[in-house]
Design a protein around this nucleic acid. Structure first.
Length: 564
RNA sequence: CGGGGCGUAGCGCAGCCUGGUUUAGCGCGCAGCGUUCGGGACGCUGAGGUCGGUGGUUCAAAUCCACUCGCCCCGACCA
């Protein structure tokens, strides 16, 4: 491809919109352009990269026993109502009506469609297992698109769905996919961590995420320095240390004027935060919920949501709290009635705690559970934090951020049951099909590849997904043979089947080199009067600083070698 | 949806507070000509703007007011 004809221009300045690296570089390299929030056009360079990623994914899916197919993006809303996941997706579902006023959804994912299809097709255990996948555009009305391609509303995703007769079969499918995924990230030059995860709106039991470590990542990962334990904060557990508080003492009221937060309470009463009780208020499916947790801990909303089995959960507004007659800043579960109280199990690990007195400017000392208050549920709803102890080995937990570039779920039979996807087993009984699903966002993976492979000059494409392998960069000078040699070399290399991006523009060396660095093609080949004097061209890898001269008659061989 | 910010040429910005001297300006980019040519060269000439939209205030609005649309960032969601 000749740069003079390439659609898409490089830009020197960083667009103000972008503040993640991949977004900036994609824009500067002229690879993408935003149409509206969370919706992007892929210009030729980006599209080439995406197709490379897609092919890698396709190969690995095929190797893992997948069969590719294509499913409708336009899906009847009834199907979603049947599975009950219209509620789980809620606002995230793009919906529309046709001319007869039938409600449709733009597929945010395809479990329903594929399950309906497989249910209608599969009859016997002999038809299983099946692993079906599609690579296509999906739509989600994200609350907040961000970071360029990292989080968008219209995106190309590979989803594979596995159908097995039982849990053992699912395990096998699951493990094969995990391996296939490792291969994919490996080939794309994106190191990942396998992370235990919450299954979210998709539902199901076991779930793992593939996280590419990056500062711009939205996911926090808690991991153990000693053992293999690695989990998304949403799911991560940690050992809550016991706090020695001694034998329960009689409860006593103390006046605490102007004192509200845990920090204020603990410094005012001279107790450590882990000797206090924190009260937090949520609204779950329109009902106010009272949360109690030890003062040094934070509420993990995902855990809370799962514990409540609610579809909608948010912090209560101060007005809502006040309406229920609760005194903010001095609230406590002691004496609370008519409100559901959910407690983190940390409250059982300490005694003689400080809590609110449900009276203005008053707190209580020596509050003990269960002596002084009741709860409706006690479970783990605390957020694991770096510095906590590992739930598996007791080692120290640390935290990093990353981009979720893949997710695997053991769905089980939740959806197949709802949609009636069954098969006849060996004993002649009808049973729901055991399902798993495995997704990779291709555009996000592309962005993650940049997040992990760049320097201050630009992108450094891993060869397997680079839009071109060779950046041919002639430095023209009148009266020299540069042009002729470059043209010949371009023709020759292209004929040999090598992917060459040919900078045939009349630009100064600085412009050309900087663009080459920005575009990040693995190998730069410079031809100039200087190199021709030595009957050579110059080669430079994008990953290295050093250049080397290669004699003209060896070029083709060397380049074929290097870019194979 | 809550909080914050921003809409002026393809990109980055100034002008707005304190309406009129601006024919709306600067840099990059773009077009033409010439000189340059190993790390974003220079000169000259030139093209390009519904100042997000609507309504209002005013003799006069990019500038003030109201409404509205859009975009970005922080939180709840996810590949």
């Amino acid at each position: 491809m000749r740069i003079s004809q390439l659609f898409g221009k490089t830009q020197r300045e960083i667009p103000a919109e972008a503040d993640t690296i991949s977004h900036q570089l994609l824009l500067r390299a002229g690879m993408i352009r935003q149409l509206t929030s969370g919706v992007y056009s892929y210009l030729p360079l980006a599209w080439r990269v995406l197709k490379k990623i897609e092919n890698i994914v396709r190969e690995e899916m095929d190797n893992a026993g997948g069969q590719e197919l294509l499913l409708p993006a336009l899906q009847p809303l009834e199907l979603w109502q049947k599975s009950g996941r219209d509620l789980a997706f809620g606002q995230g579902l793009f919906t529309l009506s046709d001319r007869r006023d039938h409600k449709l959804a733009l597929g945010p994912t395809h479990e329903e469609v594929i399950t309906e299809l497989v249910g209608a097709t599969v009859q016997s255990y002999r038809d299983l297992p099946l692993r079906l996948y599609q690579i296509q555009t999906k739509f989600r009305d994200e609350p907040r698109p961000r970071g360029g391609l990292l989080r968008v509303r219209e995106f190309i995703m590979k989803d594979l769905y596995s159908f097995d007769i039982d849990a053992a079969g699912l395990d096998e499918s699951y493990n094969r996919m995990l391996q296939a995924y490792r291969n994919i990230y490996d080939r794309c030059g994106v190191p990942i961590r396998l992370v235990e995860a919450d299954s979210g709106a998709i539902g199901g039991k076991d779930s793992h995420e593939f996280i590419a470590v990056a500062e711009s990542g939205e996911d926090e990962v808690i991991y153990c320095d000693k053992c293999q334990y690695t989990a998304n904060v949403e799911k991560a557990q940690s050992v809550k240390e016991k706090v020695e508080g001694g034998e329960p003492l009689p409860r006593e009221e103390v006046s605490t004027p102007g004192i509200a937060t845990i920090e204020e309470v603990s410094s005012f009463l001279k107790v450590t935060p882990n000797r206090t009780l924190k009260a937090v208020f949520y609204v779950a499916d329109s009902k106010l919920i009272f949360i109690v947790i030890r003062g040094d801990l934070e509420v993990n909303e995902i855990k809370l949501k799962n514990a409540l089995g609610s579809t909608e959960l948010r912090l209560a507004t101060s007005a809502e709290v006040a309406e229920s007659g609760i005194i903010a800043g001095a609230a406590s579960p002691v004496g609370i009635k008519n409100i559901k109280v959910i407690a983190d199990d940390s409250i059982t690990s300490a005694t003689n705690l400080v809590a609110g007195a449900n009276k203005p400017a008053t707190h209580l000392r020596n509050v003990n559970y269960p002596r002084d208050f009741r709860t409706d549920l006690i479970t783990d709803i605390a957020k694991a934090q770096a510095g906590d102890s590992c739930p598996r080995c007791g080692g120290k937990l640390s935290s990093i951020y990353g981009i979720e570039v893949g997710h695997a779920f053991k769905l089980g039979t939740v959806i197949s049951q709802k949609l009636g996807a069954q098969f006849i087993d060996q004993s002649g009984l009808s049973r729901p099909i055991m399902m798993g699903c495995y997704g990779i966002g291709l555009g996000r993976l592309l962005a993650a590849a940049i997040e992990q492979n760049h320097d201050d000059k630009g992108i450094i494409w891993p060869a397997a997904i680079a839009p071109y392998q060779i950046h041919l960069c002639p430095l023209y000078r009148e009266g020299s043979k540069v042009s002729e040699v470059a043209e010949n070399l371009y023709t020759e290399l292209t004929t040999q089947g090598l992917e060459v991006l040919f900078d045939d523009r009349q630009e100064s060396p600085g412009v050309k080199f900087n663009d080459a660095d920005l575009l990040g093609i693995p190998l730069r080949v410079t031809i100039s009067p200087r190199t021709l004097e030595k009957n050579s061209i110059e080669m430079k890898k994008r990953t290295e600083k050093e250049t080397q001269l290669v004699p003209l008659d060896e070029i083709t061989e060397r380049l074929k070698e290097l870019s194979s």
